[in-house]
Structure formats: C-alpha cells, structure tokens
Computed example of a mutant assay.
Amino acid sequence: MASEHRSSTATTIDPVQMIADARRALFTMVGVLAAIWLIQLVNWMDDYDLGKRFGVIPQDVSRLPNVVTAPFLHWNWAHLEANSGPLFVFGFLAAYRGVRKFLGLTLLVALTSELTSWVFDSPNRIGAGASGVVFGYFGYVVLRGIIDRNLIDTLIGVVLGASYAYMVTSALPGVAPGISWSAHLGGLIGGLAGAWIFRNRAPRRAREPQVQAPASASAPAGGETQGRAKSTGTDPNSPNAALLKELDDLGL
C-alpha cells in the first residue's frame, strides 16, 4: 500500500511548479537570444571580423578552440533571423526541465556540431552559426520524454518530431547545398546523446528505500504484532493509526 501511495504522488502534476519552470526557461532563452543578437551587432559593426577570427576552419588545428564560439556568430542578419525562431522554441523546451541541464546540453551540442563540421567540411570555408545547436535541442526534446518515461515530455517530443521532421533532411550530405550538413548531423547526434546523459535519475533513487527497508523484516511475528497493532490503532493521535487499521482489517 505504501509503495502505491508513493508512486501516485510522484506523478502528480504541480501547476505552480510548471509555471515556475516555464518562467525560468523563458527568461533563460530571452537572455540567450539577447546575447546572440548583441554579439551580432558588434560583429556587424566590425565588418564581421568576429566571425572571421572566431569561426571554425575545418582541419585547421589552430581553430579547434573556436568550436565553443562559432555557434554564437552569424554571417548576416538574415542568417541570424533564420536561426532565432527555432533556437528560441527548441531552446525553451530544452531549458524547461532545468537550466543547469540546459547549459550542459548547450556545451555538448556546440562541441559535437562544430567538431563534426571541423572533420567533414571543406577547409575552404569558415563555419559559424547556431543551426547545429538548434538541431541538438531538437534531438534532445524529441528523445527526452521516452528516456525519462515522462508522458508530457513524450507527447511534446512526438508533436515536435512530426512537425519538424523535414529539418532532418538538411543533416544529409548533398541535400541542402551551401549549408553545413555535418554541423546539423553532429548537433542532432549530440542532442540525442544528451537526452541520455542528462536523463532524470530521480525515480531510481526514489525506489531504493522500498527495497532496503521492508516493513515486515523487523516486525515481530504472531499474536504479539496483531495485539500491538490493535492497541496502537485505537489511538486516534497515532500517526500510524490508519495504516495499522488497514493491516488489521486484512488480517495482517
């Protein structure tokens, strides 16, 4: 009975907590987009010199550290505008389950996206842009609910996957000329891996006390237990009165 009670309360939806989580995710993404647009303004005023200096040049070892800066740089305003919408939507859904997980996920997908681009793209170009991170958030949100066994997140992932499945085609070689398919593919793989790396481990820990301390292990046997249950159950002030009465009614 006790285990059934715990599992039912664990799945209870708290509207206040949901609103707080949504507000935190909203503020996080507003801050992220504000920072990216500010960087773009500085980049534009400097004739996009930031992109030239801090973008990724494939197969150039000296540019490897730029894998953490390239996703936040864009080559023109149209490039930034195209990424801002999906970045906000997918980023909000990714940040909804925790800002710390979101920051770790962002670093992961930035690395997998730009490293894949560094390996597979032509060395005659400089890579920059947040589209790989967008694909990472997308993969994370689609898979997260299944791994965490969360019904709401699973439904969100199914709807998101069905609505934006066409995006995955740009992660295939030769489908979208002029776009780094490898950065998209690397970001997507990083997001799918992130759903496992940053999975919710709380349910497993919550089940441990049920296995470690069974109530029947330390209880005396025979009529002594039944007599103690009855005498304690008659006291309305006892915190265990209701439970002991149920056990008594069952003859336990």
Rank of each mutant, 00 (worst) to 15 (best):
E114R: 10
L115K: 03
L115R: 02
S117R: 03
W118F: 13
F120R: 10
D121K: 09
P123I: 05
N124W: 00
R125H: 12
R125D: 10
G127V: 14
G127W: 01
A128S: 12
A128K: 04
A128D: 04
G132V: 07
G132P: 00
V133I: 13
V133L: 04
F135D: 06
G136C: 08
G136P: 00
G136Q: 07
Y137W: 07
Y137M: 11
F138Q: 07
F138V: 13
G139H: 04
Y140C: 15
Y140L: 15
V142Q: 00
R144K: 12
R144P: 00
I146H: 04
D148Q: 06
R149E: 04
L151R: 14
L151E: 06
I152D: 07
I152W: 07
D153Q: 11
D153E: 15
L155F: 04
I156L: 07
I156Q: 01
G157L: 01
V158S: 01
V158G: 01
V158C: 03
V159I: 15
V159R: 07
L160H: 00
L160M: 08
L160N: 01
L160E: 01
A162C: 04
S163Y: 02
Y164A: 15
Y166D: 09
Y166L: 14
M167G: 10
V168L: 15
T169A: 15
T169H: 06
V175L: 06
A176D: 08
S180D: 09
W181Y: 12
A183G: 12
G187F: 02
G187H: 03
G187T: 08
I189Q: 06
G191F: 03
A193D: 03
G194T: 06
G194E: 06
W196C: 14
I197T: 06
F198K: 11
N200C: 09
R204V: 15
R204E: 14
R207F: 02
E208I: 15
P209R: 08
Q210T: 12
Q212L: 15
A213Q: 09
P214C: 11
P214I: 13
S216T: 09
S216M: 06
A219F: 01
A219L: 13
P220D: 10
P220C: 10
A221P: 00
A221K: 13
G223D: 12
G223R: 13
E224T: 15
E224C: 05
T225V: 11
Q226W: 06
G227M: 14
G227Y: 07
A229V: 05
S231F: 06
G233N: 01
N237T: 15
S238W: 02
